[in-house]
Structure formats: structure tokens, C-alpha cells
Design a protein around this nucleic acid. Structure first.
Lengths: 156, 156
DNA sequence: TTAGCTGCAAAAGGTTTGCAAATTA
DNA sequence: TAATTTGCAAACCTTTTGCAGCTAA
């Protein structure tokens, strides 16, 4: 299925298991496994690309499947979100970014250079508890990113 | 400048001082004070409307100045932001909300009913300190809202 | 077979921009 | 007068949607 050379051989192990788990869940929920969906999932599973906009996903998919339309990417992401395996986060103006759900973490986006810092889940624990106690408000903090300036940009 | 009757007389005191301060600052920075800008400022100063989208501001302005265009409202808000008296916050999908800067507070928006909770500034103190220490990241948390479900909506 | 996807084109929703005319200082 | 603002229309960008054809199960 893949030409030799340019791409490393598929690494057996957790990544593949994960792909299979997602696809199986999708099928269980009445969804269908298609080329486009497999391709989007591959991009999301790609270690190097864990925080990507829909457009970036589409571009990556186009390397191998130039015919997959951006709207299909959006619909695929929606399907993945509806079965709980994908989440999106708003970084501010413009695009949202998507990532697989099971890596629970928060985000801090640099307004200046766009870098997205991944933060441990624990960082919001206190805030979450405080809001729950004082206001009965249930924070879904994974949906949003903190905004500010990263170390490098803060200096200037 | 104002017809009698329908509108209460201008309340003397802090509100007016504040309006004057903003307009003076605007002039100091080389900006001009116009009807549209005065009107937008009035909406922002209005106690009852401290968190409003650009469109809502435009609607309110239209009560008295039907000719002020939405794009002028955006440009006015931009001008106010550039002199530091206005901030906007993204609540999630869609519109941003604008408010005067000197009331430093955070926001928690209910995904379900849209209600915006105002939180004391202190709520993020620890998170801010942690990020600064561990990552050198300077949080500008006022720019974003926490998202989740308010007490009423969380029940269902 | 048939419910569920897909590509395409077009719309939607919020925000920004170019421009000539109007206004402020 | 000179520099800023304004209204308008049109563009922009991201995301969503309608539809007819295609495909997975």
C-alpha cells in the first residue's frame, strides 16, 4: 500500500493499535471507514503533527489523496469528535486546531509566534475546583487555550 | 444635546469622568472624537451591557444613531483597544465580546445557555505564576474565556 | 441494497478593507 | 488645511450545508 523509500515503514505497536481502535469504534457507532477518514486519522496520529488546523490536515492528506475535499476533512473531524476521539481547541482569531482526545492536556498559545505549548492536565485542577465550589460551573478547559507570550517572545 | 423625557438625565459622577478620560486619551493619542465613537463608548459604559458583541454594540448605537455602520463600530473598538481602554474576549465559536479594560476580570462562558460569568481576577493567579515559573510563559488570560456549563445547565 | 460518505459549489457568519466623501482639530 | 473617520460595498477567512452521485457494509 505504500511505496518504498521516502516514508519509513509503519511502526508496529501503539500507533497501529490506536488507529484500529478508533476505526473500530467508528464502525460500532454506525460510521463507515473510508479512505478520507483513514487519511485524516493518520495525520492526527502522526507524532509530529498533533496540533493542526483543518486546512493543515487537508494539505497533509493531499500528499497522498489529492482528491479529498476540505469539507470532507471537516465532516470527518466532526464524526471523530462525535464519537469522542477528537477534540478541537480555539487558539484565538481564526482557525481552530484538532487533536486526538486521549492525550488530555491544556494549551498555551503564543500570540506573537503562534507556538502552542502543551501543559499538563494538572495545571487547571485548582481553578476547576474553585469554580465548581463557588459557582457550580463545570469547566471544560480543554476546549480553550490560554493566550499570552512564550519565553522567547516575552523578552522583546 | 439630548431631548428630555425618554432617557434619564446623565448621572454625574464616575461614569462621566470615565467617559471624559477615555475621550481625552483618545485625543492625546492623535485620534478624533466623533459621534460614532462617543456612542460606542456610551454603550460600553452602560452598566447593563458590559459584555457585548460588536453587532450588539451597533444595534444599541442605532437606537440614536441609525447611520453608524457596523464597520465603524469595529474600527472604533480597534481604536479603543489600541489605546488600551477596551479588550475583547473570545467565547468560543463565533463572536467576540468587548468590554472596558479597567475592570479586570476573567470570564466563564456556558456552552449551553451562553451566559457569561464574571470571575475575580484572582482565579488565575496560581496558574499564571506556575506558567511563568515553569515555562517562562506570560499568560494574558483576559483575552480568553473558560468554557463549560453553568450550574443550571450542568444539571441536565 | 441502502444508509452513510463524498466532491463540488455555494452560503453563512464574523471581521476586515479600499475608496471617495465627510469631518475633526 | 491636513490628517482622520466614515459609509458603503465588496472581500476575506473559516466553517457549514444542499445536493446528486458514489461506496462501504
Amino acid at each position: 500500500m505504500r511505496a518504498s523509500g521516502r516514508y519509513p515503514a509503519t511502526v508496529p505497536g501503539p500507533v497501529d493499535h490506536r488507529r484500529d481502535r478508533v476505526l473500530e469504534l467508528l464502525r460500532q457507532e454506525g460510521g463507515r471507514v473510508t479512505t478520507a477518514r483513514r487519511a485524516v486519522l493518520s495525520v492526527l496520529l502522526d507524532e509530529g503533527r498533533r496540533h493542526v488546523s483543518a486546512e493543515e490536515i487537508a494539505e497533509a492528506v493531499h500528499d497522498r489523496h489529492p482528491d479529498v475535499h476540505l469539507s470532507t476533512v471537516y465532516r470527518t473531524l466532526e464524526a471523530f469528535e462525535s464519537i469522542g476521539v477528537v477534540t478541537h481547541v480555539h487558539l484565538g482569531h481564526g482557525r481552530a486546531i484538532y487533536h486526538l482526545t486521549d492525550e488530555l492536556h491544556h494549551h498555551a498559545a503564543c500570540e506573537s509566534c503562534g507556538q502552542v505549548l502543551q501543559l499538563p492536565d494538572s495545571i487547571f485542577t485548582d481553578v476547576q475546583a474553585t469554580l465548581q465550589e463557588m459557582y457550580g460551573f463545570e469547566v471544560d478547559a480543554h476546549h480553550f487555550a490560554l493566550v499570552g507570550r512564550c519565553e522567547a517572545c516575552a523578552v522583546g
